[in-house]
Write a protein that binds this DNA or RNA. Structure first.
Lengths: 215, 215
DNA sequence: ATCCCAACTGAACGTCCGGTCGGTTATTTG
DNA sequence: CAAATAACCGACCGGACGTTCAGTTGGGAT
């Protein structure tokens, strides 16, 4: 019997369950790298013996699989949600960027791990394949928005999409949730920079040129 | 005696020297990850025995050190060059972006490896420290440009600089030099997207609105 | 022809790796 | 109190890891 709520009552000896163990494991994987983390090091960080880990998961592989799937499931849910937006493709694209930033913030450690996968094992190669599928959807969306005339025509849409999500994905390198900056707030910032650039935009109407010349 | 030119004549048994070995090693490190690459695997890719590698370098560490230093030296040279540009800070910034893209293209495998360093060893930690120093210079430059009013004031300059170079650095994920796209051409594209955004800019003068409606 | 020298080999080494196994401890349920 | 349940331990295994070492190979220079 699993209690549907906060599961404060759990049978057996208390300690880690699969979920809490995964949280710590992914954290360590991100600090030292997946290949750079030994099961022994991981067990020390968990405060339990190495063999205890195998009570929860079948091996190191499964920890990675659980992590990257959680990231990918989030990203595909974001894509599905964005595709449902009616109207212009560029609006779907902006929605996708916002939703992706949301997933990135909510599941930061998992997405971080996903973005560093190299393809050494079957688990990694499958993750990379799913990720490429996501990237293809983004590229298609950008191409569609370009065809509708809402994306700058002087850059190849394939490159635009890569630079756009290159910027989005780079969040994992520095964003830390401790700050009071919410996900939506961050998504706003990313959209501003990504869609209209880092340069100060020129005043839209040349009539109201009452801007002072500085200090 | 080292011949100053193409060094087509070299003493001793022919084979790898430190440089040609480094090229292959960095390539393999980028494919499988540094920690994920064993000296045995590396020796197979080189076509020589494992122990032969130690004739050229002191160990796996040195290969990594040589690689990341080559990337960092390039980036700092780019920074120095950019700082020498007179005029507005935003011009120095654009120069720095272009020069950084240039380094990224010229030394792609080395920069790729640098950007994936996690800090497990002393070599890695020192590389990360130097990289943070570079990032600090970028952040200062963006802050200066913002103070001069050339960067959009509605986003924290610290975040702007991170997103900007997040986009630049994401090039290592997909750019491959085989295409005929030159570094300068790519730098132009990156500057366009980064400084003025992915969205189609509104026509600057509303008089010439003779744009056709499509196909 | 011979010397030099850089490149290379093969067999080890101690250590760490991911994973296994049989048994133990702590908590909830009835 | 048992019974059921879930988490955990310590010793161990075979193999892969980075590295070492005493020698060997092969081409350029003289």
């Amino acid at each position: 019997m699993t209690t549907a709520d906060g599961r404060q009552t759990r049978r057996g000896r208390p300690g880690y369950d699969k979920e809490s163990l995964l949280q710590v494991a992914v954290k360590v994987f991100n600090e030292r790298g997946y290949d750079g983390t030994s099961m022994d090091e991981l067990s020390k960080r968990l405060g339990i013996s190495k063999s205890a880990i195998y009570h929860h998961v079948s091996g190191k592989d499964e920890l990675l699989r659980l992590a990257v799937d959680r990231a990918l499931d989030g990203l595909f849910a974001a894509a599905e949600q964005a595709m449902a937006v009616e109207g212009r493709a560029v609006d779907r694209l902006e929605h996708l960027v916002r939703a992706s930033v949301g997933v990135l913030v909510d599941r930061l450690p998992f997405v971080t791990l996903l973005l560093r996968v190299r393809g050494n094992t079957t688990v990694e190669r499958r993750a990379m394949a799913r990720r490429r599928e996501f990237d293809r959807m983004v590229a298609d969306l950008v191409a569609q928005a370009a065809a509708e005339g809402d994306i700058r025509p002087d850059v190849d849409p394939a490159i635009t999409s890569r630079l756009l999500f290159g910027m989005v994905n780079s969040l994992v390198e520095w964003y830390r949730p401790q700050g009071r900056r919410s996900g939506a707030e961050l998504a706003d910032t990313v959209c501003k920079i990504a869609f209209t650039g880092v340069r100060r935009p020129r005043p839209p109407d040349p009539q109201s040129s009452a801007v002072s010349g500085g200090s």
